[in-house]
Design a protein around this nucleic acid. Sequence first.
DNA 1: CCATTATTAGAACGATCGGTCAGTATAATC
DNA 2: GATTATACTGACCGATCGTTCTAATAATGG
Lengths: 197, 197
Amino acid sequence: MARRTAEEAEQTKQAIAAAAKQLFIQQGYQATSMEQIRESSGMSKGSIYYHFKSKEQLFMYLLELNMVDWIFKCTERFKLVSTATEKLYAIAHHFAHDFENPLMQASMEFSGTKGADPEVIEKIVEMSKFPLPLILDVIKEGIQQKEFAEDDPEKLALLLYSVLGGLGIIQFDNYSLEELEFIHRKAIDVFLNGIRA
Amino acid sequence: MARRTAEEAEQTKQAIAAAAKQLFIQQGYQATSMEQIRESSGMSKGSIYYHFKSKEQLFMYLLELNMVDWIFKCTERFKLVSTATEKLYAIAHHFAHDFENPLMQASMEFSGTKGADPEVIEKIVEMSKFPLPLILDVIKEGIQQKEFAEDDPEKLALLLYSVLGGLGIIQFDNYSLEELEFIHRKAIDVFLNGIRA
DNA sequence: CCATTATTAGAACGATCGGTCAGTATAATC
DNA sequence: GATTATACTGACCGATCGTTCTAATAATGG
């Protein structure tokens, strides 16, 4: 079997991408082999390399997809609320719920890969910070609206990003989703309390 | 050349450990090869495997050493201050300054390693949380001394641990040590402000 | 001073890695 | 219906992985 329709080919590509994504999230970048992706996706080695020119590029593809999806969902949520405070809770909720986000972990690990294209590394490092501008905007808005006390928005944004990122990275094997979400809300509670006007 | 004195042998072991530590921190666990450790330490493959029975065990050895050192330094600092608030600043300072701590990153990545001994994985996951009890104690003390508002100490400890861990993990390529320390202090400021009695 | 043992060196191992390639089959094009 | 471009297969590649093994040598105990 070969030469599917363009539509079917796209399905193949997405099957590979989906399998790869799951494995990268579960095991990290380096621990995931192309052989595993082949097995999990049910496609052949050749097919993978037909759609993606390298493991690096496959990973990049996933990161980009993940990023635009994340930002889209977040801005959608923003439309439902009005205050900066509510927006921060929305972001936290997003961090807690988004299973897809753990790609962040994999992308931090990626930097260490030997022989990796420096250009790709820099691009990935840059991309892993994508939620920062969003957070920054909300904090600026909060300060302007007098919801939050006057302070350096850049530093506060970095702080909140670290909290949420840290919460996502720390191993929570024995926590339920509810507890997890609770902790994320708690994080915002404390943070808000700390910067309130 | 072979058969050094016991003292010289220990030096060899420590040279290997030191080289490995640096590489694990810089590149992560999987990206660091035994060949690199051999080259960097200047010792031979045989020598490495004489002192450490596997890459896993070498990594474990470093983690344990790092942990006791961290705790020791921290409790030493605690003796110089009195309030829980001051202790939190001390912990933050420790997180910011301790270059050695980035082993945490490597230990989180380790979990994904294929074929890794599950027993070792669990042990490492457990070990990576070592600062938690310390933080928990301080927070309990702070609540008891009425420095902090009444709250669930477990959750607050997890929160602070995530903040500091997150700050340590996020890529700060373009930040100086001073800025880094500043941000860590700022984190405690906001956190303290958020939980103050 | 001899036998033993601790410590090193480095060649070699099988396994697995990411990646390539010649070949095939079919949809699309004309 | 012949031709061409596309989608895919699976065997295969050299490199590198963690690890093992044998041999050499120097310190140690008798």
